[in-house]
């Protein structure tokens, strides 16, 4: 009975606060989420063509049915230790808004995890870490069944730095 109650409550809160669905993936043991409506497709990792003179985290470009899209290694972007790509390694192809229109990009992650409903209420602002970790690209932290999911602001994450402006670019 109480379980039933919970479910209806959950559903209600979804409707009221406009819950969003998030696709989560694993990166170095942590679970991260991105807005599922931004996800175009998930594909296995294939060889990329490196682009000269770009930061290390830009793996290169691939051919996605005739369009050239850049691939970003998220481990590298977050400064995590590199691991060799395994069978679960996937590329999540995302639509990124901003920087003069929509763009398609891929991120390399360790594995895809799940899809969760997270309402805005459930999402908490990340604490301020000062200079230790920049929280600009984190939309919020959400607790989903005892686990913490880090919801990413992909527009911010993928547009920042070298992707659009020439900041940090080698000249």
């Amino acid at each position: 009975m109480s379980v039933m109650q919970n479910i209806t409550n959950d559903e209600k809160s979804e409707i009221n606060s406009g819950a969003n669905q998030y696709l989560t993936f694993i990166l170095a043991g942590e679970e991260y989420g991105v807005d599922i409506l931004r996800v175009q497709e998930i594909k296995g990792w294939n060889k990329v063509t490196p682009i000269p003179n770009t930061p290390e985290y830009i793996q290169g470009v691939i051919n996605l049915r005739g369009t050239i899209i850049p691939i970003i290694d998220l481990r590298c972007r977050f400064g995590l230790e590199n691991i060799s790509y395994g069978p679960t390694t996937v590329v999540i192809v995302l639509k990124v808004v901003g920087g003069g229109g929509n763009r398609i990009m891929g991120i390399v992650v360790d594995a895809v995890s799940d899809v969760y409903n997270v309402s805005l209420d459930e999402m908490k602002q990340p604490p301020d870490f000062g200079k230790v970790v920049s929280v600009d690209f984190i939309k919020g932290l959400a607790a989903v069944s005892e686990k913490m999911v880090i919801i990413l602001d992909i527009d911010h994450l993928l547009n920042a730095g070298v992707m659009v402006s020439d900041d940090g670019q080698i000249h």
Binding site: I51, I68, I69, R103, M105, M163, V164
Partner: peptide
């Protein structure tokens, strides 16, 4: 010729890409 700029950005020394 495919554009790199559509989803990425202009790169020095590279005018585009192809498949």
């Amino acid at each position: 010729i495919k554009s790199l700029e559509t989803n990425f950005k202009r790169m020095d020394g590279v005018s585009g890409a192809t498949i």
